Computed example of a mutant assay.
Amino acid sequence: MTHSIPHNVLLDLPPFPPQRTGELADRVAALLGTKNDVLLVQGEAIIALEAAATSLARPGLKALNIVTSPYGAWFGLWLERGGSEVTNLAAENALPITFAAVEAAFEKQDFDLVALVHAESASGILNPLPEIAALARSKGALVVTDCVASVGGHPVEVHRLGIDIAVIGPQKALAGSAGLSMLSVSPAAWAQIEKPGAKEISTLSLLDLKRNWLEKGRGALPGMPSSLELHALDAALTRVEAEGLANVIARHETAARASRAALKALGLRELTPPETASNLATAIVLPEGISVPDALAAIGPNGRAISASVGAAANRVLRFQHTGRLAGFEPVVANIAALAGALNRLGHKADPGAAVNAILEVYNKASAA
């Protein structure tokens, strides 16, 4: 059966009140724990990331770009396109960067900017943002962070950590729509963006947004604002505020612990140790003799949160997601059950009862806490 949303829900939407766009930005700032300027960018978060790189890049800017996913690699390319001198520091495949590696890079030379992804939903890793941000600050470098996946799943404390640009989107842990993204910009970041050679008259220009939105009273967004996406962001923020950000993060933590306990009960090994794993997804190594395509075919449509991982390990690794609306008891149980059934059909003995008991134990402890 095909399910569709009634047309009248999506068509003829009332325009989003222009005076409320500034309120949306303030609510995002509260979510990020910052008094820095917050910009709304029309488009998926990759556009906000490219706009940040494009607006910051200048000839002579020395950037340490930490690569733990394709997004990190693209950010380095965008900085290079603007003339920056980029040192790409790549982690081992499907693993987080180590703080020691970042320290070693700073021992070789100074940098004006450090860029990294906080949490990777594709591989389930968590980079050591607090330690890296503290080191960058001590060296006088700007900190630019892709927090698209981590916001709502992990604490993202922009002021406390001293993050100069934090890019977020509502489509992951906040369980919103992907068509609008946001970023916070510190005074130090603005000072770099406003240097001679700034990108102007461009959809990738943060300076244009500053002049045409921030400095004009934060009314209607420049161009043709999408009322659908603005209403969707409003709804997502309202839901998060009603639940409470701390509770949203705790829900993701519990779902992650329960998923990993259940996967262990099924006899599966995590690719990333728990201390460097995110609350968003778990990368699991399949038993010998079972390929990713075979596993996904056996899982079928019931395991809607299970997919292939990325990178060189993708032929042996599955990604088990527990993000957004999937970070809850029922979705975790349903997907573990689908995976257990698939493993048994493929000849790997898996006990779904033991896995469900492991999930119950984690959720019972969380309820009692």
Rank of each mutant, 00 (worst) to 15 (best):
G179Q: 14
G179A: 14
S181F: 08
S181C: 09
M182E: 05
L183S: 04
L183K: 05
S184E: 06
S184I: 05
S184K: 02
V185L: 01
S186H: 04
P187V: 09
A189N: 05
A191I: 02
Q192H: 05
I193A: 00
K195Y: 00
K195W: 00
K195T: 07
K195R: 15
P196W: 00
G197D: 04
G197A: 02
E200W: 03
E200F: 08
S202H: 13
S202A: 13
S202W: 11
T203Q: 15
L204Y: 13
L204E: 04
L204G: 01
S205D: 09
L207V: 04
D208T: 08
L209H: 14
L209A: 11
L209W: 13
K210V: 06
K210E: 08
N212I: 01
N212R: 15
W213K: 09
W213R: 03
L214N: 11
E215N: 15
E215Y: 05
K216A: 05
K216P: 02
R218Y: 01
A220S: 11
A220T: 02
A220Y: 07
P222Y: 10
P222T: 10
G223V: 11
G223A: 12
M224W: 14
M224D: 15
M224G: 12
P225A: 14
P225T: 11
P225S: 13
P225R: 13
S226T: 12
S226Y: 12
S226L: 12
S227E: 13
L228S: 14
E229Y: 15
A232I: 02
L233F: 10
L233K: 02
D234W: 07
D234Q: 12
D234P: 04
D234F: 06
A235L: 06
A235Q: 07
V240H: 00
E243R: 11
E243I: 03
G244Q: 03
L245G: 01
A246Y: 01
N247A: 14
V248F: 00
V248N: 03
I249L: 07
I249C: 06
A250N: 07
A250H: 11
A250V: 01
R251Q: 06
R251H: 01
H252D: 08
E253H: 12
E253L: 09
T254H: 09
A255R: 04
A255W: 05
R257G: 07
A258V: 06
A258R: 10
S259M: 14
S259A: 15
S259V: 12
R260L: 11
R260E: 15
R260N: 15
A262S: 13
A262L: 10
L263F: 13
L263E: 10
K264R: 15
A265N: 09
A265H: 08
L266E: 03
L266N: 11
L266G: 12
L266Y: 08
G267F: 05
R269N: 13
R269W: 01
R269A: 15
